[in-house]
């Protein structure tokens, strides 16, 4: 008589594998803290992030009342970093959701229906992918005009082909499998097959790609702001802070070092988590 066999769902198994990955856990915790700080920004930030104080310009780190110093207009850097995180996380996750939403719809249609629809969609995707990603985002913002919302829209558009391709690839391999064929034979409508049978089976590559992509989106949005094409001053946003701080790099390097370090930490956390998720969801890939 063998011991009791505990049946676990694949999701539970994946979560358990994820919990054993120390880097992924560290990433998830860091990300959770960053999200918490962003949500609680109105409570946590010691000052209004746009409140200027010309008597306290360029205060160094550790100045009373300004734990991380102040910028060229005497604004509290800690408060600006906290509020900036809110913007960056919102833009990063928001852009991924938009890009993934459109990419999934387009990829599902191309992969499932095939034929001329697939050809047209794939040619369009080829064209979008013929541009270096950030360059395409710059071109779109140049056309729509600078601003945070347009920057977010631009990086979302740039992200669509990435998801469409992942989904299309998964659908192509799923389409011929017996359970999909069976659903078709019993007369299930296409929409039901796509949403109930195809999509759930594409979720793992999607989750991994999205996690890694949030990091890219955050960096791209900060990059656009850095170029003057994204968020505009006086908004507290990490890219804007970095760009403004550059003028004072000789006398107050912390103005540009701190926001960049914040971006690095959040993106690193996302990459740790994304790598861990990939290993956990697809153990065959583990090396």
């Amino acid at each position: 008589m063998g011991g009791a066999v505990i049946a676990r769902s694949p999701t539970q198994e994946a979560l358990q594998r994820l919990r054993r990955d120390r880097m992924a856990v560290a990433g998830a915790m860091l990300l959770f803290c960053a999200a918490l700080v962003s949500v609680l920004a109105p409570v946590l930030a010691p000052q209004d992030p746009t409140q200027t104080n010309l008597a306290q310009r360029l205060a160094p780190i550790g100045t009373p009342g300004y734990p991380l110093g102040s910028d060229e207009l005497g604004r509290d850097i800690l408060s600006r970093l906290i509020w900036g995180g809110r913007v960056s996380l919102l833009v990063g996750f928001g852009a991924v959701i938009v890009a993934m939403g459109f990419g999934v719809i387009v990829g599902l249609m191309a992969g499932y229906f095939g034929g001329w629809l697939d050809s047209v969609i794939m040619r369009l995707i080829d064209v979008l992918m013929a541009f270096p990603a950030i360059l395409l985002a710059i071109a779109i913002v140049a056309s729509l005009g600078p601003g945070l919302r347009n920057a977010m829209l631009a990086i979302s558009i740039v992200g669509i082909p990435y998801y469409a391709r992942i989904i299309r690839g998964s659908v192509l391999s799923l389409r011929e499998l017996e359970f999909i064929q069976a659903a078709r034979i019993i007369g299930a409508p296409d929409l039901r097959i796509l949403t109930r049978h195809v999509l759930p089976n594409c979720l793992s590559p999607l989750i991994v790609a999205a996690t890694l992509d949030v990091g890219w989106m955050i960096m791209a949005a900060a990059g656009l702001s850095f170029l003057g094409l994204g968020a505009q001053p006086p908004t507290a946003e990490w890219g804007v802070m970095l760009s403004a701080g550059r003028q004072f790099i000789r006398i107050a390097p912390h103005l540009s070092v701190l926001p960049g370090a914040a971006i690095l930490l959040v993106v690193l956390a996302l990459n740790f988590l994304g790598d861990g998720l990939r290993d956990a969801l697809d153990p065959r890939l583990r090396q």
């Binding site: 900060a222 850095f226 970095l242 370090a261 690095l264």
Partner: peptide, 11 residues
């Protein structure tokens, strides 16, 4: 590849 390139340049 988590380092923002513009920040690295400044550093």
């Amino acid at each position: 590849f988590s380092t923002p390139i513009f920040w690295l340049g400044i550093i």
